[in-house]
Design a protein around this nucleic acid. Structure first.
Lengths: 158, 158
DNA sequence: TATTGTTATACTCTATAACTATA
DNA sequence: TATAGTTATAGAGTATAACAATA
């Protein structure tokens, strides 16, 4: 940490500190938005060299946990429109991390699977994300962390 | 609540329930994303008839709490690019909720103020948001709620 | 030279609608 | 008729760069 800031930076920080947040200080949505911004920026930076971001990582993880899952089920599970999922899966297919197989029981749908390269990338991603997660624990406290996860899980449905 | 679901819906729900979330169940970022989606959808629906959303509401609240604030300070406080802030303020000005005044001390910057209509809209918005917030408390529990707010406040800086 | 507000551009994400092939 | 995947389009959000007025 620098013991001395430039005059410009000091002024900006002093001004930022003097801002009053009013009712926003009592609104969960405001804090959730700031937290998401911070978390995604940190996680995306860690995943960048694998050429994926947290959204594409989540897709890899879900295919890994549910081999042969269809595109609509994947879309529903992650809250992503199926039209957008097509493009995201195109990216992962271009990286040769996944394959789309015609379902044998319903020829309209694709059965999604990881390739060996996809499994390897996911393994590394999970290590990077574990380090990221530890940083979050350190930041909010190991006592509060499980409470926050349990509380936010209330928004899983509906 | 319907006592009976259509066959199609029942199948979809059964499939959705059988999905495994793997490592995602241990990642704060995943829960934060789902929570933000839920919270913003609920809050935006409540604010819709005032012709604003949560972002524009936050701007009104910050101008109210900091009369005469400049556009860059507002941008910095809310984490919105100043180029985007211009268009958001245009919207609020078109609604006649705010005015841009030339600063007397620095003619480059605008001093932002609420109009009477803006104060009135903000007052109603704060009531709508208070009801929304109570719904959040009910959903995550009044014991966990302050812990979650305090924990997520750790992402305010940096 | 640097900053404020502004305009412009490109990219991403979201939301819809429509098309095809299958069921 | 309905569904899975796809394509296309429009609107919103994000990120940059550049410009005029002002400091």
């Amino acid at each position: 940490m620098p013991s001395k800031l430039s005059a410009t930076t000091a002024v900006v920080e002093a001004e930022a500190e003097s801002i009053k947040y009013g009712e926003l200080n009592t609104h969960l949505g405001y804090f959730v938005r700031r937290a998401q911004h911070w978390i995604f920026r940190d996680a995306n930076a860690r995943l960048a060299h694998l050429q994926i971001d947290v959204i594409r990582y989540s897709i890899l993880e879900l295919i890994s946990a549910n081999p042969g899952i269809s595109q609509v089920m994947l879309s529903g599970a992650l809250g992503i429109e199926r039209a957008r999922m097509v493009l995201l899966l195109d990216d992962l297919q271009d990286l040769q991390f996944i394959v789309r197989q015609r379902s044998k029981t319903d020829r309209r749908s694709h059965a999604l699977h990881l390739t060996p390269a996809g499994r390897s990338a996911l393994k590394e991603a999970n290590q990077l994300i574990a380090a990221h997660e530890q940083r979050l624990v350190d930041r909010i406290g190991s006592d509060a962390y499980p409470i926050v996860i349990a509380a936010l899980a209330a928004f899983q449905s509906g």
